[in-house]
Structures are given as structure tokens and as C-alpha cells.
């Protein structure tokens, strides 16, 4: 069954994009509803998961642009699936804090850059697949990913410096 097979992938993409469990659930439902209503328009030249992701991407971006006034920077901490390596609780906590910080940084990126970085660095899609999902040329995709990564690094560096300054003051 399509829903069972792909719900986790879509839900995770939505959660990574919005940082809210409730919103991710709502958007996942919308994605499958949209899919259900547009199966007759399925482009057979596209792999099904890629097409599904492009539907999810369009809905997420549309929703984000229509609700820009909402604050998206607070994230819900959702129970993650256990990590394959069994580190101690302290290391586990440190890693989850680092993930939370980077997730918050991601949510401050513009929608296009955020989606490109999520698809490439978290979801692990190839550049060609991302170009198909985003319906954008390869050059644009690479540029968005690079800009997104760089902005994220700058943001976290500034945050770290501000933290250090706050600590010394």
C-alpha cells in the first residue's frame, strides 16, 4: 500500500521542513490527499518517489508562503528512532542537542534553500533527483544547496560567538 510505504518519508520531510509534529502530520495527510486526487496526472517519466517528493515539496512551500507570519523557529522535540550506535546517555544527549540547534538554524533559512539542503544533506537525494523534485536546472540546485549550507554555517558561527560573548560578559 502506497500510504504505508511512503508515509514515513513524507512525514519526515515535512517535520524537517516545519519542525512541528502537528504540522508535519497535517501536511502528510494533505500530500496523500493531493496525490489521491492527481494520480491521473502522474508523469510516468518520473520515478514515483521523486514525484511524491515534488508534490510534498510544492505543498510545504505553498503552505509556508501563505503562513509566513507564523513562527517556524521553535521546534517540537519528537522521539527519534534509536541511533544505530549505542553511545552512552551523555553522548546521546549532546548529539540530540546539536541536532536541535542545527534544525533551528535550518528553519531560519529561506524556504528554497531549506528545502534544497534537506533533500540533499538529510534525505540524501542526488543532485539530478533534486532537480526533478524542484523542477529547477542542475546549476540552480547546486547553487541553492551551497548557499544554504554556507548560510547555515554562518548563522551557527554567529550564534556560537554570541554565546561565547554572553558567557564571558
Amino acid at each position: 500500500m502506497l500510504i504505508k510505504k511512503y508515509q514515513r518519508r513524507v512525514y519526515n520531510l515535512c517535520y524537517q521542513f516545519f519542525g512541528r509534529a502537528g504540522r508535519a502530520e497535517e501536511m502528510t495527510q494533505e500530500v496523500f490527499m493531493r496525490l489521491y486526487g492527481s494520480l491521473n496526472r502522474y508523469n510516468f517519466e518520473m520515478e514515483f518517489p521523486t514525484w511524491l517528493m515534488s508534490v510534498a515539496r510544492n505543498l510545504c512551500i505553498d503552505f509556508y508562503r501563505h503562513h509566513k507570519k507564523e513562527k517556524f523557529v521553535d521546534i517540537d522535540v519528537v522521539a527519534a528512532l534509536p541511533a544505530p550506535n549505542g553511545d552512552g546517555p551523555a553522548a546521546e544527549y549532546e548529539r540530540s542537542e546539536a541536532h536541535r540547534t542545527i534544525h533551528e538554524g535550518l528553519l531560519r533559512l529561506s524556504d528554497d534553500l531549506r528545502m534544497a539542503v534537506i533533500l540533499r544533506d538529510i534525505q540524501g537525494y542526488s543532485y539530478d533527483e533534486i532537480a526533478a523534485v524542484l523542477s529547477a536546472p542542475l546549476g540552480t540546485v547546486k547553487s541553492r544547496i551551497n548557499r544554504g549550507r554556507l548560510e547555515l554555517a554562518r548563522m551557527l558561527m554567529a550564534q556560537r560567538e554570541a554565546g561565547e560573548l554572553g558567557g564571558t560578559a
Binding site: 500510504i3 512525514y11 509534529a21 502530520e25 502528510t28 519528537v78 528512532l81 541536532h99 544533506d121
Partner: peptide, 18 residues
């Protein structure tokens, strides 16, 4: 960190709702 981003579990009744 992005490469090891944890996967989260969707709500158990999500499929049923859809």
C-alpha cells in the same frame, strides 16, 4: 550532523487517518 539527522516516527494512526 545533517547526514546523521535522526529519523522520526510518524503518529501510529496517521495511515488510518489518511
Amino acid at each position: 550532523l545533517l547526514g546523521s539527522f535522526p529519523e522520526v516516527e510518524p503518529p501510529p494512526d496517521l495511515v488510518e487517518k489518511i
